[in-house]
């Protein structure tokens, strides 16, 4: 089944930033509960936006969220010292967001990840910038999987982010990432494919229409996770329906459950 990484607890969102600054635990708890109820499989926690306060903000957020978390957390920071602290604070095996092939990021994240039991998001980004072709994306994914395997992280714990790019600037950006996902899943059937989806619709109107249609195509290509807002009920309904159509929902149980709860409506 598709795994949703709930993106809402991020201090670059205005209301979250205010809640963190005011140490408003009720707001954060309420938001996390809503994401869990909506079907989030992970809760991403990013405390990076209040510059100079990341460590204490992350610490407070985890203290606040941990007691009510029913799903694992995604620890989202570029700073290994903050991740080390966060790693010790969580109960369930966390997901780390993220490593990439950018030299600084790679060199600081590899020693952090070595020997740890965790899942990890691996971005197909390197020092030359965003990938420019399907082969480019697939080659970067291969490099990431092979490096992470070497330090003991199994392929099934790796979530490759192929980096979705805006179709508004180049109409081939959709097929580029779709073909890359097929190639990656072909080379590594065990690996997960995740990422943000909304970049695809940047610069165009009616973005959610594009995002929902795109996730359907991506899931057919092999995407089995995404970093999204679980409170967007339409995309959640689409994802659950696609899971069924791709034969991942035994006896259509989850689909029917979704219909009965009112989450899925045509």
């Amino acid at each position: 089944m598709f795994e949703v990484i709930g993106e809402r607890i991020n201090t670059s969102r205005k209301l979250v930033q205010a809640a963190v600054a005011d140490r408003n635990a009720d707001y954060i708890i309420d938001d996390v509960k809503k994401q869990q109820d909506a079907g989030a499989n992970f809760i991403d926690v990013n405390a990076g936006a209040r510059i100079g306060h990341e460590k204490e903000d992350m610490c407070w957020l985890l203290d606040t969220i941990q007691p009510i978390a029913t799903v694992p957390l995604t620890l989202d920071s570029p700073d290994p010292t903050i991740l080390e602290m966060a790693f010790l604070m969580v109960e369930k095996t966390p997901m780390i967001n993220s490593i990439s092939l950018e030299k600084d990021r790679f060199d600081t994240m590899m020693p952090f990840l070595e020997g740890k039991e965790c899942k990890v998001i691996a971005l197909c980004m390197d020092d030359s910038g965003m990938p420019i072709s399907s082969d480019d994306i697939a080659n970067r994914a291969t490099a990431l999987v092979e490096s992470l395997n070497k330090i003991g992280i199994p392929t099934a714990s790796i979530y490759i982010d192929p980096l979705v790019q805006p179709i508004s600037t180049d109409v081939n950006k959709g097929t580029m990432v779709l073909n890359a996902v097929r190639a990656i899943k072909n080379s590594f059937p065990q690996v997960h494919i995740t990422g943000g989806l909304s970049n695809i619709s940047y610069g165009l109107p009616q973005r959610k229409m594009i995002n929902r249609t795109f996730v359907t195509l991506m899931m057919d290509a092999g995407m089995d996770s995404a970093i999204i807002d679980p409170l967007d009920s339409k995309i959640m309904a689409t994802i659950r329906t696609v899971d069924m159509l791709l034969g991942k929902d035994s006896f259509c149980m989850e689909y029917l459950k979704g219909v009965r709860s009112g989450m899925i409506q045509s």
Partner: peptide
């Protein structure tokens, strides 16, 4: 004013 979009601007 969001009357034109990126592909049109390009």
């Amino acid at each position: 004013n969001e009357d034109m979009f990126i592909p049109e601007v390009l």
